[in-house]
Nucleic acid binder design. Structure first.
Lengths: 113, 113
DNA sequence: CCGGATCCGAAAAGATACTG
DNA sequence: CAGTATCTTTTCGGATCCGG
């Protein structure tokens, strides 16, 4: 038991989506189903390990679906579930804020460290 | 240089806000200025250390402002800047999602571990 | 090759005792 | 009161290995 998260819904949401990569993964899946390595290319800085872990967490939460096509070589596709598409709005406002943020002098500085 | 964050604005936003507590802190500051220990009470699970660190990061990003009143005992107040109030929309959609999330069977399970 | 799993050192988060 | 210093614990990234 991770204590009383129930107190605040923002905390509940951030516990699931708060990582550095999770919303980013979702944002790329909004375009449609993607394979594991396609996501890796979309997110060059993520490690294989974290991509696996975050995909699993999102899957466990019912936000994305994992489909294995037993071809050779194997193909694994990830896509948003209907529930996962609820995140569209979050991604949209986050993107909007990010665009603004990248214009700020703070951002320039934060890149150099 | 943390590499090419410039590629995606969602990534930029999540680098700043993606932590578990930061948006939560912001959400409480939307109500108005608050003191350090008031925020601690609002967010019972956060450690002193992380509250300090996250407040500093948000301050450095220009989203919140720290004001010291040299009384005895000293009083330190945090409030959102105008820029910080841009986060209102993000908090709102995150809260909405969190409310939904807390209704899901997944959430119940995720609490027990 | 693709999609991982595993192991390890590094970094971040957490607990908490202490201080101006 | 509002932190800092210090120590412990957890998480993360990178390299490597593996089954199909």
């Amino acid at each position: 038991m991770k204590e009383n998260i129930s107190g605040c819904s923002v905390e509940a949401a951030m516990s699931l989506l708060g990582g550095r990569w999770r919303l980013l993964i979702v944002s790329y899946l909004l375009d449609g189903p993607k394979r594991f390595n396609a996501l890796r290319r979309d997110i060059p800085n993520i490690s294989q390990r974290m991509l696996t872990l975050d995909l699993r967490a999102l899957e466990e939460a019912g936000l994305i679906e994992r489909t294995i096509y037993p071809e050779v070589p194997v193909r694994v596709e990830y896509c948003l579930t209907l529930d996962g598409q609820r995140l569209q709005k979050i991604v949209a406002v986050m993107k909007e804020f990010g665009l603004w943020l990248k214009e700020q002098p703070y951002f320039e500085k934060s890149m150099n460290k």
